[in-house]
Design a protein around this nucleic acid. Structure first.
Length: 199
DNA sequence: TTTGTCAATAGGACGA
DNA sequence: TCGTCCTATTGACAAA
């Protein structure tokens, strides 16, 4: 816990979230250059500001808000605790950070999106590697089949490569006539236990 | 000038 | 109907 200063320790952050490591996307590392944003960007807008926005009027050009390091840090801390906020938490965080609740909401939405993107990229990498290893394994097995085909003449047990079968449960390759000849590699996540197989 | 980052917006889906 | 979420997109800004 302890993601907020003492005076905000009454914040009820109880939403459970699947375990997530701290963010790789924090602003900290991206060069101190952009540093602090101007105060007027961070202040809680007055009701006139809201009205100005909602009424459109002459629609002033959108200014880019940059969160301060401290604001980012606190938001990251909160996000590490909970990936979503209830209205009370949002309100409290907004007050504490001198931002509008809507800005807190938007930050969490964007943060969740970035998390998901990161996760998807990692899964993509994993699948790429898996594909690579399966391709390699496939080539190896093809070579093995060719070798077996070459050996078939004179062998009483192996009459043709097409007589090779693979047990769908244990993934052992066997001839229709005899004992297992080779064990296929399986994805790292899967562990083979002899009890799974009837062989 | 180009590129990357990120706050903000739009709009649709969903549950209470 | 309202509040919240997600996704796609926009636009400001800083760094290369």
């Amino acid at each position: 816990m302890a993601i907020l200063p003492e005076n905000y320790s009454n914040l009820d952050l109880t939403i459970s979230v699947p375990g997530f490591s701290s963010s790789p996307l924090s602003d900290e590392g991206s060069g101190g250059g952009r540093e602090q944003l101007k105060l007027d960007m961070n202040r809680l807008p007055s009701s006139e500001d809201d009205e100005e926005l909602s009424h459109g009027g002459s629609a002033p050009p959108r200014k880019k808000l940059r969160l301060t390091r401290e604001q980012s840090r606190l938001l990251e801390d909160s996000f590490r605790q909970n990936h979503t906020l209830n209205p009370k938490q949002k309100e409290a965080l907004a007050k504490h950070l001198m931002l509008r609740p809507r800005q807190i909401e938007v930050w969490f939405q964007n943060r969740r999106a970035r998390s998901k993107l990161k996760q998807t990229e990692m899964e993509c990498e994993y699948l790429k590697r898996w594909f690579g290893s399966l391709t390699e394994q496939n080539h190896r097995l093809h070579r093995e089949v060719e070798e077996l085909r070459a050996m078939k003449v004179g062998s009483p047990t192996v009459t043709s490569a097409s007589s090779l079968t693979m047990c769908p449960r244990c993934e052992r390759v066997t001839t229709s006539a005899g004992p297992s000849m080779a064990v296929m590699a399986v994805p790292a996540k899967k562990t083979f236990t002899p009890q799974e197989c009837e062989h």
